[in-house]
Nucleic acid binder design. Sequence first.
DNA 1: GCTGATTTGAGAACGATTCTCATTAACGTT
DNA 2: AACGTTAATGAGAATCGTTCTCAAATCAGC
Lengths: 145, 145
Amino acid sequence: MAQRNTWQRERVREALTDARGFVSAQSLHATLRDENTGIGLATVYRALAGLAAQGDADSLQSPEGEALYRACVSAGHHHHLICRSCGLTVEIEATDVEQWARATAERHGFRDAEHVVDIFGLCASCAAAADQRTPDQLAEKRDAH
Amino acid sequence: MAQRNTWQRERVREALTDARGFVSAQSLHATLRDENTGIGLATVYRALAGLAAQGDADSLQSPEGEALYRACVSAGHHHHLICRSCGLTVEIEATDVEQWARATAERHGFRDAEHVVDIFGLCASCAAAADQRTPDQLAEKRDAH
DNA sequence: GCTGATTTGAGAACGATTCTCATTAACGTT
DNA sequence: AACGTTAATGAGAATCGTTCTCAAATCAGC
């Protein structure tokens, strides 16, 4: 009996799909815990690891050192443009970069090369929101001073 | 009195420079602790954070979630080809990738884009070593079975 | 050498992730 | 539908990397 279907695994899969971008295991767990029965944190981690292992999810390390997961849309290898504020993710293809990475590794005698290529930034709407907020923050700073 | 010069900070700088590639704060601390007086782990972290902040060191997240540091040779922005076995690092320039990243971010309306571009692989000597070891490992597997 | 702010080090605190293990429940068999 | 096997779960403990705390040590200017 290799793999059993539990409602927990389904829920994790759903929640991951519903999320618009990359989410941490922690916040996924928080979401699930809010809306239903108390699913265990360990279970969420196990489910995510499983999904990632069988290629149904992507995982990457945020610059802060958290592991982020996302439901995988396109099956193949690809990269991401991630909003560091709201987590919105755009899947990007990078054929050129792909080739460049392989060529570079070979040129230096490296084998079994994997590469990490991701772009973090502020998406259009978050950038707009940030612009609106900035004056207030400056004002607060002035007041606090 | 902004910044003080302590032998600890110097030692960290030296050790970081001596290391041939990326090292974790933990292993740097272990090295330093072995060869001399007991330098504190927190101090190593602080020194590394400081070096990274003032641009004298690079930092990146390993796929395992550890933060890795390396003495910065070229001042500007650059990327790395890292041996996942011995940590040997080659600094690589990626002007094309640079531009591609900027263009991609802009095309999707993203602002303040940073990118993570690193290649992990097996360097030539580690690959050779792995080839030698592989038959034994297979034999072991057979025996253990 | 004295003074005072910065830095240190030991350990506590912390957050993310993994492990443990008794309990639960999925699924093939009856 | 009940059964037995056994993978999966959940609560909490354990682990690991990193940051924080605070008293004691130390650097820099006088």
